[in-house]
Design a protein around this nucleic acid. Structure first.
Lengths: 241, 241
DNA sequence: CGGCACAGGATTGCATACAATCTGGGCGAG
DNA sequence: CTCGCCCAGATTGTATGCAATCCTGTGCCG
């Protein structure tokens, strides 16, 4: 059960980053792979194996894995190793509860600060989403989920609060994991039209409406999941019953 | 310019932790020292020095420092080292903006879940705060600030959302830093009575009122700071010490 | 035949060694 | 005297080695 399948090989090509921080580069690549579902929840991330893939020592890999563990994307167990997080339905609910609490506030803040260049960026983002929505194939589907998350991140960045932005980065990433695990419909889960509506509300400086649309949007995403308790049981306890 | 002053010597006594995670132990001790102001903002945390103090290798220290950097309590600059964070007034405002956004939601959630044993814990907490409020001396003042933060953390823990709880841990810790930096009044900044009022609202299951009191409370804390822009010299935190 | 003990291998935790980079001071030229 | 360069010390970044721990599979015993 090695992680070196063909689709992951692309991880191997960080184009010789400049003297930057290699641990963070690896962290970013792993995070992308996780939210893209190229790495399934529960997959073991062996230090040696990751190190070989990226051609660095375990020291650097450990730093990257620790960072991902902080973000909740990786669960690290002492003397056992690091695994792609496998959020329980309860955790999944908490992710969306948190988003329902935080994102409306972000929307209100963003509504008051939206610059013309922000609007342009948003439009480009929506166009990209449309393009991916039209495309077929699992690869496009992945990119679409990613782009959908980027919309929310863009919103957070416009709001101008770096702390909340980081919180949102974590929440969006974990949402991707949760959707990967509990996603139900074949239909695209993240209604793209809703994003456009939210942007429209922002453009008319109607932060309150944007906030409300956002909550509805999050509700839709969560409603599309199957968060029944059964699925989440760890193997051991499943056998005990 | 060593950090081994008399008041820090107490860091040196982790009573030989069991096989637990030493990096996290060191992280906790450092965090305590930072929020207690025993380590001033801007202080350099040399890996070798910290390692000597705790009698571990730099490897472990690096893990602890990375954790603190992730929480925003430490700012780590490549090839230069780790420093106790020195938040700008703008960052300080963002901390409180974040708290105003998140804590009311936590209060509403907590109001619906408050158990009798929770109430008992809260009461003990308030008594402790009163005790410290009465005491004199900088040591008691530190403990009081700490205890005041613990109230908010307790609230988050009652709310039952582990993600939001972690966010609050970060925000409370950063608040302590900010208060240390920009605190104005000699008077106790964190009105203890307000905590009691909040608890009363929670006990009567009036989450809305608790939320509102909480916002007022946060406003009071922030109002007690001097967040004028003047300090904002990005000049390398010039003379920050 | 099933359960338990134990050894082998593999993996992580930690310490240490070495390389890369930064800081600060001294020295020389203008 | 001031400015700039260069070198030495110090500090961080990374790799590697060793010890501790955990998992697996085998063989023994009930």
């Amino acid at each position: 059960m090695t992680i070196a399948d063909p689709q992951l090989t692309q991880l191997n090509s960080p184009p010789a980053q400049a003297g930057e921080d290699r641990a963070m580069t690896i962290r970013d690549h792993l995070r992308d792979a996780i939210v893209d579902r190229r790495l399934a929840p529960g997959t073991k991330l062996s230090e040696a194996e990751v190190g070989t893939l990226f051609d660095v020592s375990r020291t650097v890999v450990r730093a990257a894995l620790q960072a991902l563990a902080f973000e909740g994307l990786v669960k690290s167990e002492r003397n056992r190793g690091a695994f792609v997080a496998n959020p329980s339905p309860e955790e999944a609910r908490q992710v969306f509860d948190s988003r329902r609490l935080i994102e409306p506030g972000i929307a209100r803040a963003a509504a008051g600060r939206l610059s013309p260049s922000d609007i342009a960026t948003f439009r480009k983002q929506l166009i990209e989403e449309s393009r991916l929505l039209a495309e077929r194939g699992s690869l496009a589907r992945r990119a679409e989920i990613r782009a959908s998350g980027d919309f929310h991140l863009l919103l957070a960045s416009v709001a101008g609060n770096v702390i909340l932005h980081r919180f949102m980065e974590e929440l969006v990433a974990r949402s991707s994991l949760v959707i990967a695990l509990y996603g139900n419909s074949g239909a695209s889960s993240c209604g793209h039209n809703e994003h456009a509506d939210i942007l429209a509300a922002l453009e008319s400086s109607d932060g309150e409406r944007a906030a409300q649309l956002l909550v509805t949007h999050i509700n839709h995403i969560e409603a599309d999941l199957d968060l029944r308790q059964n699925t989440g049981l760890p193997l051991r306890e499943a056998l005990s019953r």
